[in-house]
Design a protein around this nucleic acid. Structure first.
Lengths: 252, 252
DNA sequence: CGCACTTTTGAGAGTCTTCAACGGCTGTGG
DNA sequence: CCACAGCCGTTGAAGACTCTCAAAAGTGCG
């Protein structure tokens, strides 16, 4: 799958029948610029100038850091409502690269506009702060995963995380598709692709999950949770944020 | 070393001869509340309500997550000018715990005050945003370290990171003290303490470093950098932030 | 429909961990 | 001031887990 660069095509704001609001800037998704990113296309690359945040509207993306020698490390997978691009805030350049794993669409949120929004509205500030905070929390959890968990636990944690996130979007928590390759999963979890494959096979044999290529069914959620251990960071339903007085997400 | 809870003693704002400004809220350190944290004392614990950020003024702290079953994972070591407490922003409760590794002092920055500052001043917003961004960048680099590096590389990267940070503070980049135990280092790097000890011994034998208990001397910086590989995330001098028009830090 | 990539599975090697023992250092109390 | 207890650090040996190399089957895109 060759990576190409996404053309900025649909970047003119246009309205849509139902206002799909999300908990990230700007408030109103219906009048927000969008951009399509086809499977294999790159949303932005490492070293690109940063001036825009994105929120996934449809599809799945993967983020990964690129070392000077070409080695890569996947840092996350983004599904609808996830924010993309925060890695560029610090230096003004993107440290990581983002590619679509399937035909996707993202909302385009110029960062200076976000900043203005945060400055002018208390709600805006809350939302922006929370976006940052989530990224920090997520990274911290991933650090625990990479630091203390063994292969089987990492894979289980990965599946439970996806399950939870799809669930929050209104999709099934028990059956979903792994849009990313075993290689990508391995890179994300600090494992080799063979190890990922073996662990999935083992979990299948043991009846905890059912795997058929990219199709996954979680057969025994409690056992999976037990496996991960109460020990390693909460992949559990979100705690309410002190920043979040604006509550949950509509529909889903 | 038993962990006790730090009493809120010096929390009344008081002035100081020279204004030690730092690049984090509030602007003026000279009129900022402070708090002493003695060796082994806890600045805050996991689950504690979050309402305050801290900036290390003197000393060294360690942050670590605490699992339900009591297992811990060190998430970072903080030296002067580092921000502490951002992990609590997301949920309103601290997810991690912070303990002083030596007698230390921190500036106390009520978060709502920071928020107000960010809202009212462009400079404040930049500084706050950058504080968040740094935390994200740092976590991302740690993810790479934990995900793709081997023990020797992790330890070398750890030493180079400390070297760089001490250097930025005006201390020697070549000789410094490891205030934390081998156990803490291991926890931070996703290794066992024995592995850390062994690697340090090996690096010593090979002439890259000189280790005597907690005292470290980096004898061959280029070799250490080579070992880490250009591959794994930049632990190199900071890129300038687009958020940072306020420049460097005053005297180290 | 075929080529290329992905996934699975096996076998052996390597790294890191685990268990264990020993010496050193530190802080405390007599 | 010295003795002691507890923690820290080092080192060894065996074992566990993951990686590497390799081959074959499966899948999907063009």
């Amino acid at each position: 799958m060759t990576v190409t660069r996404a053309g900025v095509s649909g970047d003119a704001p246009f309205a849509e029948p139902r206002s799909t609001s999300f908990d990230v800037p700007p408030v109103d998704a219906s009048r927000c610029a969008r951009q399509r990113v086809r499977r294999g296309e790159m949303l932005f690359g490492a070293g690109d100038a940063f001036h825009t945040l994105y929120v996934v509207h449809a599809g799945v993306l993967k983020s990964f850091t690129v070392s000077d020698d070409g080695l890569t490390q996947v840092t996350g997978f983004q599904i609808p409502r996830d924010v993309v691009g925060l890695d560029g805030v610090g230096s003004g350049r993107h440290l990581s690269e983002v590619v679509a794993l399937e035909d996707s669409e993202v909302f385009v949120l110029p960062f200076d506009q976000c900043q203005r929004w945060a400055k002018e509205s208390a709600h805006g500030q809350r939302v922006m702060t929370r976006a940052f905070a989530r990224e920090i929390t997520r990274s911290q959890e991933q650090m625990v995963l990479l630091g203390v968990m063994r292969a089987e636990q990492r894979v289980a944690a990965f599946l439970l995380d996806l399950s939870e996130r799809y669930g929050r979007l209104g999709y099934s928590r028990l059956r979903f598709l792994l849009r990313m390759s075993r290689h990508d999963i391995g890179s994300y979890l600090g494992l080799q692709l063979e190890t990922v494959s073996r662990v999935l096979s083992r979990l299948h044999r043991e009846g905890l999950v059912q795997v058929q290529g990219k199709s996954i069914a979680l057969l025994d959620l409690p056992a999976l949770r037990l496996l991960v251990g109460v020990s390693a960071g909460r992949l559990s339903p979100e705690v309410d944020s002190i920043l979040d007085r604006d509550g949950g997400l509509p529909g889903g």
